[in-house]
Design a protein around this nucleic acid. Structure first.
Length: 873
RNA sequence: GGAGGCUUAGCUCAGCUGGUUAGAGCGCACGCCUCACACGCGUGAGGUCGACAGUUCGAGUCUGUCAGUCUCCACCA
């Protein structure tokens, strides 16, 4: 017997329990051929990042799945790690450098700067890992990977070389998205489009050797410095005579060929479009088709080059100056306000500049084909299913992926440029000569790879690829990938095509997509808004279990959720409820072994049967990734069935002098409690483990115990419903008493008239206690007189309570009449339903039977009501 | 322009393949310190499931139209 504190104190428990798991190697996964494999690789958080609510949700889902499968006997691997997060990390270190030392990375030089980043990584890299542990994450930390560790670096290099050798990676000057703040190229996926107010500037372009001119509308007048043509629609009669002629670029004087291209939309703007192939993706395409000159007019800082007097101006300064000049010289026709979508950098929010630049690309079409096929074939399933379409749509329209970044922090591209022959050598080992001309005059490509290039290999690079490892053989493809919908394009799709290409197999069977955690007003949590809620603070205050339960209940897969601190409180209360139920069981415990008694009471059968039902439902929901539904079922079972009913039902036995009865109650209480802890463990690992450790048990840890399964021998549907008759009677009496404001302290005699005497006699004790009766008498016959009695009627019993002072004869009559009318109304609709030939013949048998049963119950209720009424006279 | 989500109790949301009188948490009302728990117990009020039409014996659930709202993709210079 143990005395535990009245309230559950997570702080006193959580780190202790986590240490216990660690010390017993509970998280360690072994490729055990006698078991079935289950694997999840963790989406690696940024190595220098801090845990936010999104991580907390992500990790909780993965932990629940992993713990569930582990308890089901799978060899469950949850493989953690961190991401070097190229831009994000580099920006942080640069910022630190600037603030503390007033230096830029260029002041330090590449090598010294990288030393600083590694130092930074060493300093902060462990932080997020420790934060994961607070949540109870059961990852195999011994396998933890980092996207820039040796294993991953080798995988990146191998993948790059393979793709290059196959011609799927190439270097070329293409139009890309440039972030002037981060000073690097970005992929299409890294650009976020945002509506911004702007203007349409209408500018006159004179026609050479003519008095005519074209009016052109543009949102970006500064790019005119790079104009090398004007385009009109070939079907546009207005301009047909100008096609083939030449326009003169105002301010600059450059001659611009006028070309006809379908790209120009009829009826939009003025119908004539200036072409700036170096600074607009569409113009680039048109330029390719018509051989227009490429004139780059901005540098890496988005300052003007090749622009005469405007050189050195920032793009916005240049815009202002150019518009002024145009106006002054009479070229500006008008200005109209015009909102348009501007691409911004997803890291820093700066407006990106489209520009041509020599970059490295992955050729996507051939890779996409396989990535589409494997999803279409159902090898990879999205949960919820609707995300399949989003993925497909993206994959079908994917452009080549710009993978080079002008950063220093990342995987440096393994390519060497020959200064003699100008060709490129790509190599798995560092090259010392040009593979084409064998010149020693080579220099390494300075660019690094997009962070997502290494993330794309994560499901297999973490398991040792390109080596043929036991882990890969056993756990790849992984079972589930858990991640947010915001990252499908960045990551999920790239893992799929990378897996198909390098492993010849899809990387995971299921992609389990979750939504965003928003604040209580539905806004995205963000640093700038300052509305973020710190998961660690919540865990500290309410316990990690409460936080986890909060995050996974009351919402459905793929949908955003709002975070309410109040809900944490409610979940904390639930923890406390479990704690106290356990405390109660322990206080009454004299047995030392968890086993069911030889013979079971009716209430035992009831709870065991209910437990069996809930076990089945929980597993069904878990297997469909309906974790929230599963959790809610466990919650209800614990609070309603076990605490509110079963514990109360056991008290008479526990308090009786009958030792055998006492022990049998203990046994069932303990058995069901233990099963509850198992069911709940994946969701609330700490409190369940803590309690389990204090109960009689076998084995090292609850988390290594086996998950409950449905047991046919413990299914008692008849006893279940028979017992529920008694429960219904109790509820009915309580309701009636509450209605009349009778305090519990006022007990009353309760006469029960029923033809189910056995069930009610059996339940006498419970009825007495739970329905506040002084004594209960069960009989088949009604008392001679019911004068001064309150009557309570269910479909299985008529009950009478002598409470003369509270009863008004007419009131009783009226109430029963009301109930009768209500029941008859229901019966009527029930009869109508069953009289419907179509229903009876077409509806499934079990549905029809259920309706018949309902009808029978109503009839019984009506009989009882009528009887009671008769008795009232 | 295209795709998708959401609209259910005062608030936030569940409700899976159509089948009782539509549920939960919080909030609210009434009564209770009933020997595990006031972070609790008991009882209750509160919803024509966005609108309209259709399919069906039967629709919160399926189909269509519309409205409001949010998101993603594409992007017209």
């Amino acid at each position: 017997m143990k005395e535990l504190p009245k309230t559950y104190d997570p702080k006193a428990v959580e780190s202790k329990i986590y240490d216990l798991w660690m010390s017993r190697d509970c998280f360690k996964a072994k490729a055990d051929r006698s078991k079935k494999p289950f694997s999840i690789v963790m989406p690696p958080p940024n190595v220098t990042g801090q845990l936010h609510m999104g991580h907390a949700l992500d990790s909780t889902l993965q932990d629940i799945l992993t713990r569930y499968k582990r308890m089901q006997g799978y060899a469950a691997l949850w493989l953690p790690g961190t991401d070097h997060a190229g831009i994000a990390t580099q920006i942080k270190v640069e910022e630190d450098l600037r603030v503390n030392e007033g230096l830029t990375r260029y002041d330090l030089g590449r090598e010294k700067f990288l030393d600083r980043v590694w130092a930074w990584k060493d300093k902060y890299g462990g932080r997020i890992v420790e934060q994961q542990k607070v949540l109870g994450s059961s990852c195999d930390w011994s396998r933890s990977r980092f996207t820039m560790d040796e294993t991953c670096a080798r995988a990146v290099r191998e993948a790059f070389c393979r793709l290059y050798d196959k011609g799927l990676i190439y270097k070329g000057s293409r139009i890309i998205n440039w972030c002037p703040h981060c000073r690097t190229a970005l992929s299409d996926a890294e650009v976020e489009y945002k509506d911004q107010p702007g203007n349409f500037w209408y500018i006159k372009y004179p026609i050479k050797d003519s008095d005519e001119f074209l009016t052109i509308a543009t949102t970006r007048p500064e790019t005119m410095l790079g104009d090398s043509g004007v385009a009109v629609n070939p079907a546009d009669e207005k301009y047909a005579h100008l096609v083939g002629k030449t326009a003169i670029l105002p301010l600059v004087g450059r001659e611009l060929p006028i070309v006809a291209d379908e790209y120009v939309e009829l009826g939009f703007g003025t119908g004539a479009v200036k072409m700036t192939p170096c600074h607009d993706p569409n113009d680039y395409e048109v330029g390719q088709r018509h051989n227009l000159e490429q004139i780059l007019v901005m540098d890496e800082d988005a300052k003007i080059i090749n622009g005469g007097k405007y050189n050195g101006m920032d793009r916005y300064e240049a815009r202002k100056a150019i518009v002024e000049d145009l106006e002054e010289r009479g070229y500006l026709v008008k200005v109209e306000p015009h909102a348009h979508n501007v691409g911004t950098c997803y890291r820093c929010g700066t407006t990106v500049e489209p520009m041509t630049s020599p970059q490295w690309f992955v050729k996507m079409k051939p890779l996409a084909a396989e990535a589409i096929r494997t999803v279409r074939d159902g090898d990879v399933k999205f949960v919820p299913e609707r995300f399949t379409k989003i993925y497909m749509n993206w994959m079908e329209n994917v452009h080549d992926w710009c993978i080079s970044r002008q950063l220093w922090w990342g995987h440096q591209i393994p390519a060497w440029h020959c200064t003699d022959c100008g060709r490129i050598t790509v190599s798995r080992n560092d090259a010392d000569e040009c593979e084409h001309c064998h010149s020693k005059n080579i220099r390494r490509e300075e660019d690094v790879l997009d962070t997502w290039f290494s993330s794309a290999l994560w499901p297999f690079s973490t398991m040792g690829w390109p080596e043929k490892t036991e882990d890969l053989d056993y756990w790849y493809p992984t079972s589930v990938m858990v991640t947010g919908y915001d990252i499908i394009f960045f990551w999920v799709s790239r893992m799929i095509f990378s897996g198909m290409e390098h492993m010849k197999k899809h990387p995971f069977d299921t992609v389990f997509i979750h939504g965003l955690v928003r604040d209580s007003q539905g806004r995205k949590m963000s640093k700038s808004l300052g509305n973020g809620i710190d998961p660690l603070e919540m865990a500290e205050k309410y316990g990690a279990d409460a936080l986890r339960f909060n995050l996974i209940t009351g919402n459905s897969p793929g949908n955003d959720m709002r975070f309410y601190v109040e809900k944490c409180e409610a979940m904390r209360n639930f923890c406390n409820k479990i704690w106290n139920a356990s405390r109660f069981v322990m206080m009454n415990l004299t047995i030392e072994k968890n086993e069911l008694p030889e013979s079971l009471e009716l209430e035992d059968k009831w709870i065991l049967s209910k437990l069996n039902d809930v076990t089945k439902e929980v597993c069904e929901n878990m297997d469909r990734f309906e974790l929230g539904v599963a959790a809610a079922k466990i919650y209800d079972f614990i609070w309603d069935s076990y605490c509110d009913w079963f514990i109360e039902l056991c008290k008479p036995r526990l308090n009786s002098d009958n030792a055998a009865a006492n022990v049998s109650a203990q046994k069932v209480l303990l058995y069901v409690l233990t099963e509850i802890l198992k069911l709940l463990h994946p969701f609330m690992p700490f409190i369940t483990e803590e309690i389990w450790q204090s109960l009689p048990h076998e084995g090292d840890a609850l988390m290594m115990d086996s998950y409950p399964v449905f047991k046919t021998e413990l299914s008692f549907p008849e006893d279940e419903s028979s017992f529920e008759m008694v429960m219904e009677a109790i509820k009915a009496v309580r309701a009636r008493r509450a209605e009349m404001n009778v305090p519990p302290s006022r007990k009353s005699h309760l006469i029960i008239v029923t033809d189910k005497r056995e069930a009610f006699e059996n339940g006498e004790g419970f009825i007495c206690k739970l329905a506040y009766a002084a004594e209960v008498s069960v009989s088949a016959d009604a008392p001679g007189s019911t004068e001064g009695m309150v009557s309570v009627v269910t479909d299985n019993a008529r009950m009478f309570m002598p409470m003369a002072d509270l009863v008004d004869f007419e009131m009783e009559r009226a109430r029963i009449n009301k109930e009768l009318a209500n029941a008859e109304k229901q019966l009527q609709s029930q009869n109508a339903k069953l009289a419907n030939e179509n229903f009876v013949s077409r509806a499934p048998e079990n549905v029809v039977n259920a309706e018949r049963e309902k009808k029978a119950k109503l009839e019984a209720l009506i009989d009882n009501l009528t009887e009671s009424l008769k008795q009232l006279g």
